[in-house]
Design a protein around this nucleic acid. Structure first.
Lengths: 133, 133
DNA sequence: CATTGACCTTCCAGTTACTGGAAGCACTAT
DNA sequence: ATAGTGCTTCCAGTAACTGGAAGGTCAATG
């Protein structure tokens, strides 16, 4: 398969697949014409990567997961640990975003949003210790 | 004030403040010794930036907010619009992370996490159409 | 006066995970 | 032969810093 086909099949842009080869996540063979020649295994790996990336795993985690995937003597505990660490990162990020969201909603709710210059959002950013309501 | 003092006062690393000067978010004067000489206004701007960044505004949004802040003829509507756009981004990101979280929690909950190799997490990533439970 | 240590300077490179674009070769169909 | 599509490599840019090297400055001490 050429890169266009595996791109289509995996849902990854061809550019990204070339990048994945650069960082040695996949190692497609080459045809006589210099084109990358992807095997079924390569295509399967790319789908794996596409799915793992869409779940937010970093490239390095993907590398680990790929190697666990191809290691039939793996422990599921190793896989689980990677996923759990990732879950912690996700939870932390969600909490951080929710805190921002709460603050911003509060401020936006208090801003008239009209042609006048006074604005509780700027007041807050400027560190003004203003009264609430 | 030297950079160390405003770093302390704003909560931003000195490196970051130098970077902010590079991209012209602040323009501190220079002393005879070549050191940056921050005014009270500069220090205030840096606190503003620190707070805005901690609320997740991008640097470009910060630039806009800073200019609105110093524009006493601004409309609060302009500020509000920036904040609302940011809120949308935050909400979208939270939704994305929560979707990842739900999927991963599901998979992690199904993984034994022992010494055996079979693992629903890898099965899912590999695109296996397995039965649930 | 010399030296030490903290603080300041600039500049270069690296981070994450791609993405865009230019220049040029390969393949297919007309 | 030519057009159009797809492939190749390489270079640069994105966001927002961060680390580190090499070297100047300042305040205090011996």
């Amino acid at each position: 398969m050429n890169i266009g086909e595996v791109a289509e099949a995996s849902g990854l842009p061809a550019k990204t697949i070339r990048y994945y080869e650069d960082i040695a996540l996949v190692r497609p063979a080459r045809g006589a014409n210099g084109y990358r020649a992807f095997s079924e295994t390569d295509a399967h790996k790319l789908k794996f990567l596409s799915r793992a990336r869409s779940l937010g795993f970093t490239i390095e985690e993907c590398r680990t997961l790929l190697s666990l995937w191809s290691d039939h003597a793996r422990s599921s505990a190793d896989v689980k640990r990677v996923a759990e660490q990732h879950l912690e990162r996700i939870a932390a990020k969600i909490a951080e975003l929710q805190a921002m969201q709460a603050t911003l909603k509060h401020l936006v709710g208090r801003c008239h949003g009209d042609a006048r210059p006074d604005c509780p959002i700027l007041d807050d950013l400027a560190g003004e210790e203003g009264s609430d309501t």
